[in-house]
Computed example of a mutant assay.
Amino acid sequence: EDGVYGFLDDEMPLAALAPDSCIVLDSLSKKVAPGLALGFIVSPPRLRESIMAAVRSGGWTASGYAFAAGQRLMADGTAAELSRLKRIDAGRRQQIAAKHLADFEIQTNPKSYHLWLTLPPHWRSQTLVAAAARRDIALTPSTTFAATPGHAPNAVRLALAAPPMEQLDLGLRTLAGMLSATEEDFDSTE
């Protein structure tokens, strides 16, 4: 179970329901700071030795600094407070997205930093990604997430966490305007 963004929601992790069947991967990089590369693995007791051997054989280890910083930030409550503030931030960003993309089909958890935008029939994912990039808006086409080539829906994934709020607001407003126009209005020669 990937619990890296689990702190944004109150959903019970699968591991709480099936502790003998789940391996949980988590990290402080999303909760605290991207540079704090400190990960965690929680596994059923029967798998611990195998997992520890795999981790050791891959040469994965936390630096002394990351370990000490992570330990201190968790012990003094800083990690929990940063998680709380990021939950508020994610909700605000989702509200901005919902406002600007209200006329379009989106799928999301209103507590997350991402959303899935199904494109109007007159747009193709790759074309929109290219047109948006020319306006400094980065989108990820659905093909990136397709398990089988050629079976991706006509959609894009939006990551809402990185830009400052004003830039996010402008980018989403611009994107909504683009979606309302046709592909031909944004051809590759502009």
Rank of each mutant, 00 (worst) to 15 (best):
E1T: 04
G3E: 03
V4A: 15
P13G: 08
L14A: 06
L25R: 09
D26E: 13
S27T: 13
V32G: 08
G39F: 15
M52Y: 12
A53Y: 04
V55F: 15
S57K: 12
A62P: 02
G64W: 15
A66R: 10
G70A: 14
Q71G: 12
Q71C: 11
A80T: 01
S83N: 05
R84M: 08
R84H: 08
I88T: 13
D89E: 13
A90P: 00
R92V: 10
R93P: 01
A97V: 14
A97T: 12
H100A: 14
A102R: 15
T108P: 06
T108E: 11
N109W: 13
N109P: 03
P110H: 15
K111G: 08
Y113N: 12
W123D: 06
Q126A: 10
A131V: 00
A133R: 06
T144W: 03
T148V: 05
G150D: 05
P153V: 01
A155K: 04
R157Q: 07
A159D: 09
L160W: 08
P163Q: 05
P164Q: 12
L168Q: 06
L168N: 03
D169P: 03
G171Y: 04
R173H: 07
L175N: 02
G177T: 11
M178P: 07
L179E: 04
T182G: 11
D185W: 05
F186V: 04
